[in-house]
C-alpha cells in the first residue's frame, strides 16, 4: 500500500491518526524508518544523531525496561543508554542542554506529576512543554505505552521523536529503529561522537 502520509513534527492536531492506519509500515530487520519512509539502519543512525545535535534540548527517555535491572540484558542496555547520554552531553554546545528523564512506570499519577524529574506516558506533553524539549528518544518503553505517548507528543508538541525499539519499531515515531540492543545504542553514541562539531547548533 502506498501512502502520501508522513510522520512529521507536530503539533498535528488533538487526535492525530495512528500512523499504521495511514499506511505507514514498519521496517524489516536491518532497516529503520524516517518520517515513515523505510531507510537503511545506518541512514537512520546518522539522521538520529543529527537530530540530537541540532536540538536545543535533546533528551533521552528511558522506560521501565532499562531503568529496572530485570536481567543482565536490561542492565547492559542501561549502561549503553547512560553512555549515549554522556556522549551527547559532551557533544553539544553550551547553548544546548542534553537531558535524561526517566519513565519509571506507567501509572497515570493523577492529579499531577513532576515534569522536572519524570515523564509519564499518559501525559508526556507536560514534561516536553515544561523542559522545552525539541528532540527526544524513547528506549525501553513497552510497545503500547510508547505508541500512546508518541501519538500524544505528535498531536500536541513540536518535539521530534525517535524510538529505539527492541521489537519491530514504531510507526508513530518520526524516526524509528528496531531490534534495539546495547550494541546498537552504543553505535548511535558513536554516530553522535562522529558528527560532533559538524552539525549546526540551534540559534
Amino acid at each position: 500500500m502506498s501512502t502520501s502520509y508522513q510522520v512529521l513534527r507536530g503539533p498535528e492536531h488533538f487526535l492525530p491518526p495512528a500512523a499504521a492506519s495511514m499506511g505507514i509500515r514498519l521496517p524489516d530487520p536491518g532497516q529503520g524508518h524516517i518520517h515513515g519512509k523505510i531507510v537503511s539502519e545506518e541512514e537512520a543512525m546518522e539522521a538520529a544523531a543529527r537530530q540530537f545535535l541540532s536540538a536545543k534540548v535533546p533528551t533521552i527517555f528511558p522506560g521501565p525496561l532499562v531503568l529496572w535491572a530485570w536481567n543482565e540484558k536490561a542492565a547492559h542496555k542501561a549502561t549503553a543508554v547512560r553512555h549515549l547520554y554522556e556522549t551527547l552531553k559532551a557533544s553539544v554546545t553550551s547553548t544546548q542542554q542534553a537531558m535524561l528523564i526517566p519513565m519509571p512506570d506507567y501509572r497515570p499519577k493523577y492529579p499531577k506529576i513532576n515534569p522536572e524529574v519524570e515523564i509519564n506516558p499518559n501525559h508526556p506533553n507536560l514534561t516536553i512543554w515544561h523542559n522545552k524539549i525539541d528532540a527526544c528518544m524513547f528506549v525501553g518503553v513497552h510497545c503500547h505505552q510508547a505508541n500512546l505517548s508518541l501519538k500524544i507528543i505528535r498531536g500536541g508538541t513540536d518535539c521530534y521523536t525517535i524510538a529505539m525499539c527492541a521489537q519491530a519499531g514504531h510507526e508513530d515515531a518520526m524516526l524509528s529503529f528496531r531490534d534495539a540492543t546495547a550494541e546498537k545504542i552504543m553505535r548511535l553514541a558513536d554516530w553522535v561522537k562522529k558528527l560532533k562539531g559538524s552539525v549546526e547548533p540551534p540559534k
Binding site: P62, L67, A78, R82, P102
Partner: peptide, 18 residues
C-alpha cells in the same frame, strides 16, 4: 529480584522510587 534499579539509572530516578 526485579525491584532493583539499574545502577546507572539510580540517580535519575524520582526519590519516591529510590
Amino acid at each position: 529480584e526485579r525491584i532493583k534499579i539499574a545502577p546507572e539509572m539510580y540517580e535519575i530516578m524520582p526519590p519516591e522510587y529510590q
